[in-house]
Amino acid sequence: MRSSAARSRNRFILLMLAPATVLLAGLTLIPFVVSVGFSLTNYSLTAPNDIAFIGLGNYLALFSSSEFWNAAWITVLFTVVAVGLQLVLGVGIAALLHHETRAVSALRLIYLLPMAITPVAAVFTFRMMFNPTLGVFNYILKTMGLPAQDWLGSPTMALVSLILVDSWQWTPFILLIAAGGLAALDEEPLEAARMDGAGPMAIFFQHTLPMLFPYLAVAIVFRSIDAFKTFDIIFVLTNGGPGVATRTLNLLAYKQGIEFLSMGYAAAIAIVMLIVTIVASQLFLRRVDLFKPKAAL
């Protein structure tokens, strides 16, 4: 009896997992193995017949180039600051929205717009708006009596502007998940704390935020993974400039792979990015203990 029950339980689990597993294995494992293979060769599209195994040569070249370390630092900086800003904004706005009573559905719809608009149109609009001479941002600053900014001109401003655009586009994602989490919260502990005379800030930080965290953790993980790979915004707005101040790892991989056609080297960059993402998200997920199923059947 017992073993037949276990068998049918196992069969159920297997059947439920099989379809997604087959699809993902077919579509991600094969390209992954091929990419790892590429990264160990000097494969270049310009000399497709001269392919040779060079071991860890690409990785050694990568780790010894200042270009790589510069790009890695910018990528990490961009990801951490952008996701941090989006988290603060998204959760803050969601918390305020949670208590709002007027025009809530209109606000919700407006907050979703940046995620809904076709990205290429939005990014090119930002390029126009950032233009120091013709752009509307500097026009607004000037009418308010503030000095015009060279939005994409200096290394620091360029990174700040890129983070602003990324946050414009993706704060809604965090906001959405945080809003859902808030609505789902058990209000009882909050009510009890309120009765004990805790202020709204104390309640938010000591009770609401910890209860919200499982939701936010998923949002943070996905947003970080995507931010780490950000491409369009940087490509259109600065193309990695000024100099190489905003040339991230993914931009570097694009340059090497698509523009220079050095597929082996580009694959090595991609694999390094993958490893960094895996390690970082493992550390994070283990820390927040998001792995274990809660209700164990």
Binding site: V34, S39, A253, M263, A266, A267, L274
Partner: peptide
């Protein structure tokens, strides 16, 4: 499952 979203697309395009 999560890691399938992590690979940078440049490396995936040709395969």
């Amino acid at each position: 499952i999560l890691s399938t979203r992590m690979t940078p697309p440049v490396a995936m395009l040709i395969p």
